[in-house]
Amino acid sequence: MPDSGPDTILFDGVCNLCNGFVQFVIRHDPQGRFRFAALQSPAAQELLARHGLASALLPTEPESVLLLSGGRLYSHSTAVLRIAHALGRGWRLAGVGWVLPRPWRDALYRFVARNRYRWFGREESCMLPTPALKARFL
């Protein structure tokens, strides 16, 4: 049975690009549709385990933003495009990405993911949400 709870974005908590993406989503999601969890966190690992996904998704350096929506897990370019579509308004224009074949989209995604620490840097630990945003983080 699909999960009807809020959609959850799982992200690399030490990646500056990923943290920037989370901040972007927060700014453009005033309804609070999305929750967030760093992949390195126990909460994210518990959520993945609850959906029978933890054993396959325990990399030491995650390469993907994941979206858990309706009980299904989306990764790579599909996760990003679904998130952009859910933000509505002009962000739905990112939907033009759907015209590219998934292998091409994911190859571009993986290229950026492999280079993200070099291009954008990384932190020693996961970001801490502000008190106002704490309820949106697992």
Results as ranks from 00 to 15, higher is better:
Asp7Arg: 01
Thr8Lys: 02
Ile9His: 00
Leu10Thr: 03
Phe11His: 01
Asp12Thr: 00
Gly13Asn: 03
Cys15Glu: 04
Cys15Arg: 02
Asn16Phe: 01
Cys18Ser: 06
Cys18Thr: 01
Asn19His: 03
Gly20Ile: 00
Phe21Cys: 01
Val22Ala: 07
Val22Lys: 08
Val22Leu: 08
Gln23Lys: 10
Gln23Asp: 14
Val25Gly: 08
Val25Gln: 09
Val25Cys: 06
Ile26Leu: 15
Ile26Val: 13
Ile26Asn: 09
Gly32Ile: 07
Gly32Leu: 07
Arg33Lys: 12
Arg35Lys: 13
Ala37Pro: 13
Leu39Thr: 07
Leu39Phe: 07
Gln40Cys: 07
Pro42Gly: 09
Pro42Ser: 12
Pro42Thr: 11
Pro42Glu: 15
Pro42Tyr: 02
Gln45Thr: 03
Gln45Trp: 05
Gln45Glu: 12
Gln45Ala: 08
Glu46His: 13
Glu46Thr: 14
Glu46Asn: 14
Glu46Phe: 03
Leu47Cys: 11
Leu47Met: 13
Ala49Val: 02
Leu53Lys: 08
Ala54Asn: 07
Ser55Arg: 12
Ala56Phe: 09
Ala56Gly: 12
Leu57Thr: 11
Leu57Pro: 12
Leu57Arg: 15
Leu58Phe: 06
Pro59Arg: 06
Thr60Trp: 03
Glu61Leu: 05
Glu61Pro: 06
Pro62Ser: 08
Glu63Tyr: 09
Glu63Thr: 07
Ser64His: 05
Val65Pro: 07
Val65Leu: 09
Val65Gly: 06
Leu66Gly: 04
Leu67Ile: 09
Leu68Arg: 06
Leu68Pro: 01
Ser69Trp: 08
Gly70Cys: 05
Gly71Glu: 13
Gly71Val: 10
Gly71Pro: 14
Arg72Pro: 05
Arg72His: 13
Leu73Cys: 15
Ser77Glu: 12
Ser77Lys: 09
Ser77Thr: 10
Leu81Ser: 08
Leu81Gly: 09
Arg82Trp: 01
Ile83Cys: 07
Ile83Leu: 09
Ile83Asn: 04
His85Leu: 08
Ala86Met: 13
Ala86Arg: 15
Ala86Gln: 15
Gly88Gln: 09
Gly88Trp: 09
Arg89Phe: 10
Trp91Thr: 06
Trp91Leu: 04
Arg92Val: 08
Ala94Asn: 10
Ala94Asp: 10
Ala94Tyr: 14
Ala94Cys: 14
Gly95Thr: 05
Val96Met: 12
Val96Glu: 11
